[in-house]
């Protein structure tokens, strides 16, 4: 029983390598394969067989573009600490490659030191991501699979492109895009929300949060159901879709008992897929509408009945009364300076 409750796989299968029959790179449509090899330790988490990783032309160019983007970002950051390696490591959370300043507008050739490097890094990173997407798509087709994974990935790419490409173009300035950097991009996010009147009142942001948190909930509901019915054959999950057996029936009955309704072994995957995909899809729409259609989401929410219209409190007049600030802050304790109780 305990083996269903651990993170680690306790059964490892030792077998000859599974190798796909593929032509070498020297032939049209050829490939380089990395691996395969066996790893006992990786087998604790997944398959013991590592590889073969498929390296077609898309993958090679994508990795090259990604490498160039990371190099541009990293070297700019390193330059900003005078090429001091120790400072680079310690300041890494705060280092940034910033987009062009506002005066550059949408120029595609700003000076390198004023956002030119940012545009170059963005170009190569985007090329890398799009090529990787094409690789996901073409590999799925090559295996005769559906292309669901590629389209879910496309949804994430949509949000990425909205943040760094579509929205800056709509508002007419690269300076509105996100900087590369850990704390700098977090500051960007916080400033973005404050500047546009609190993003939590943006209905597409609300949807995105629903789908994000919903995804994690569905994920654990599904994984829990499968793990808990494993002894009845739920590891043959896909078989149970067309031929429901004891695992499927027990799992379904569990959810009908506990909440009256259940997804089945087929539809739960569609639920999870669409929840995950819609997280970034709706989020992207929300970002795209911010600063282009709506400038202050809180006021928009007041106008559309989402947020309450707070009438001025009598205790907090627009003009501060004399003596109102003569009270020591840490000891205010729910009573305003003028002696009125805060509702």
């Amino acid at each position: 029983m305990a083996r269903f409750h651990t993170l680690y796989t306790s059964i490892e299968v030792a077998a000859p390598f599974e190798m796909p029959p593929l032509p070498p790179l020297s032939r049209p449509g050829g490939h380089v394969l990395l691996g395969p090899r066996h790893s006992v330790w990786l087998g604790r988490l997944g398959e013991t067989q590592l590889g073969p990783t498929h390296m077609g032309i898309l993958a090679i160019v994508s990795l090259l573009c990604g490498f160039i983007a990371i190099e541009i970002i990293g070297l700019n950051m390193w330059a900003s600490v005078d090429w001091n390696l120790l400072r680079f490591i310690k300041m890494l959370p705060f280092l940034a490659l910033e987009p062009p300043s506002a005066k550059q507008g949408l120029s595609i050739l700003p000076p390198l030191h004023d956002g030119g490097w940012w545009l170059l890094a963005g170009f190569f990173l985007t090329a890398s991501i799009l090529l990787w997407w094409a690789r996901m798509y073409s590999r799925a087709v090559a295996l005769g699979m559906g292309t669901h994974v590629a389209w879910a990935f496309a949804s994430a790419i949509w949000l990425y492109l909205v943040l760094g490409f579509f929205r800056p173009i709509l508002v007419g300035s690269w300076s509105e895009a996100v900087p590369f950097g850990i704390v700098p991009h977090l500051n960007w996010t916080a400033t973005f929300s404050v500047r546009y009147g609190n993003l939590f009142y943006n209905p597409f942001h609300m949807l995105s949060i629903v789908f994000l948190y919903g995804s994690t909930m569905l994920f654990t509901m599904h994984a829990g159901t499968i793990l808990s019915t494993q002894r009845y054959g739920s590891e043959r999950e896909t078989r149970e879709i067309v031929d429901p057996g004891s695992a499927s029936e027990r799992g379904s009955l569990f959810w009908r008992w506990t909440m009256g309704f259940n997804a089945n072994f087929d539809s739960i995957h569609k639920w999870a897929y669409w929840f995950a995909l819609l997280t970034t899809l709706t989020g992207g729409i929300g970002i795209l509408m911010t600063g282009t259609v709506v400038d202050n989401w809180y006021l928009w929410g007041v106008e559309h009945g989402i947020a309450a219209d707070y009438t001025p409190l009598q205790q907090i007049p627009a003009h501060v009364p004399p003596g109102a600030l003569d009270v020591k802050a840490p000891h205010l304790g729910g009573v305003t300076a003028s002696g009125d109780t805060v509702p």
Binding site: S101, A102, S173, S175, E176, N187, W188, A190, T191, V194, R195, Y196, G197, G291, T292, V293, V294, D295, N296, W297, L299, W300, V302, E303
Partner: peptide, 21 residues
């Protein structure tokens, strides 16, 4: 921060928002 809900071109610039933050 804009005092109008719908975009009307009066909102301050992004770098300004960043500096204020």
């Amino acid at each position: 921060i804009s005092t109008a809900s719908i975009h009307n071109g009066t909102i301050g610039s992004w770098p300004e928002a960043n500096r204020i933050y």
